[in-house]
Simulated scan of single mutants.
Amino acid sequence: MNRYKKIICSILVCVLMVTAVGCGKTKNSSTKKYDGNYIFYVSRDKDKLENEQYKTKSSDTLEQVDEMIKKLTGKAIPKKVIVNSYNLLDGILTLDFSEEYLEISKDEEVLIRAAVVLTLTQIESVDYVAFTVNDSALTRRDGTIIGNMQATDFVDNYGSDNNIVFSTRFILYYGNEDSSNLKECDVMENYTGEESKEEFIVKRLIEGPDEKGYNRIFSKDIKLISVMTTDNICYVNFNSNFLTEQIVGSPELAIYSIVNSLSELNYVHKVQIMVNGDTNVSFKGVKLDNAFIRNLDYIENETKEGE
């Protein structure tokens, strides 16, 4: 087993441990379970995660965050990396790091992210953790933004030597058979940790459905430049082909395919669509200057026969 697979397996074991901690709170347990938290940290060899038990001293959420960050510093977070600030809003805890974070090697950085997310999402009010560096969203080497992370992202499964694979349920909205309305598609998908859930959703909409009874809306020649969520608004930035390529169905159907699919993520309340970073444009007659909210009027109303 190579170094990268060892890292993946280490993270998987830690996820199972976090799950076990939650199960220990159920009724009728025949054995006494540890009712505190765990601090996850990177081993000395930087090839796996280890943990230690830790009970927070405070019942206040932000004070718990502060306690855990201090425990993580020097163990998961390298001493040279400074946590500039942190902010908790709508279940998303955003940590802002100093620029030294960008100097961390790829393998170690995966472990650090896993350790921090696994530790901090044990706090009741923290559902997701996001990383920024000097107030700029953390990006991969190709420039794409790493989105909000949760404990189950690390990991449900693992695939090749080069990819961490997540198995997650998504609700996507494609065109129905005659492209008159949107039709909900409930799928379990595997996706690699090299992209956020928002990015995965938009790319999957462009690729089109695999299942029968659904119709593709977008041309595969449409290119996604970037997608990120901040303050519950998901910003989706396409290249100029978004305006010129043919679609199937109405432009409203295309817009709400994106908006409704992304709004299935509980931290996305609005979607702002851009073209080359510009919102002062129209998509086949639909102005993009304001963010869109979920619209159920375009979703097919399925009724069972005989009802």
Rank of each mutant, 00 (worst) to 15 (best):
T73E: 05
N87E: 09
V83F: 08
L102A: 08
E99N: 15
K71F: 11
L72I: 04
P78T: 09
E100C: 05
S85W: 01
K71L: 08
A115Y: 09
K70N: 10
A114N: 15
D90V: 07
L93H: 03
L95F: 13
T94Y: 03
E108T: 07
T73S: 05
S105N: 15
V110T: 11
I82T: 12
D90Q: 11
K71E: 14
E100Y: 13
P78C: 06
R113F: 09
L95G: 01
K79N: 11
D107V: 03
E99A: 10
E103P: 05
D107C: 06
Y86P: 05
K75T: 04
L111I: 06
F97C: 00
I92G: 01
E99M: 07
K80T: 15
K71H: 11
L72Q: 04
I77Q: 02
L111E: 15
A76F: 08
N87P: 03
G91A: 03
K71W: 04
S85M: 04
A76I: 06
S105T: 13
F97I: 00
V81I: 15
R113Q: 15
I112Q: 14
D107F: 14
G91H: 04
L93E: 03
L95P: 00
L88W: 03
G91I: 03
V83H: 04
K80S: 08
K79R: 08
V81K: 00
L102W: 13
D107N: 12
E109Q: 10
V116A: 10
A76G: 12
E99L: 07
V110D: 14
I112H: 15
K80N: 14
Y86S: 09
R113A: 05
T73F: 08
V83N: 00
I92F: 04
A115P: 12
L93R: 12
G91N: 02
S85C: 04
K70T: 06
E103L: 07
L93D: 02
A115L: 14
T94F: 02
I112W: 11
S98N: 02
A114G: 05
E103A: 09
D90T: 05
I77V: 13
V81M: 03
L89I: 10
E100N: 12
V83Y: 00
I82K: 14
F97W: 01
Y86G: 04
K75H: 05
L102F: 06
A76T: 07
T94Q: 04
E103C: 05
N84G: 00
L102D: 14
A76P: 04
K80C: 09
I104R: 10
I77C: 03
S105M: 09
T94A: 02
V81Y: 00
S98M: 01
S105G: 10
I104L: 12
D96W: 00
D96R: 00
S98E: 01
K75F: 02
S85A: 08
L111D: 09
A115C: 10
E99K: 13
I82F: 07
Y101A: 10
I82V: 15
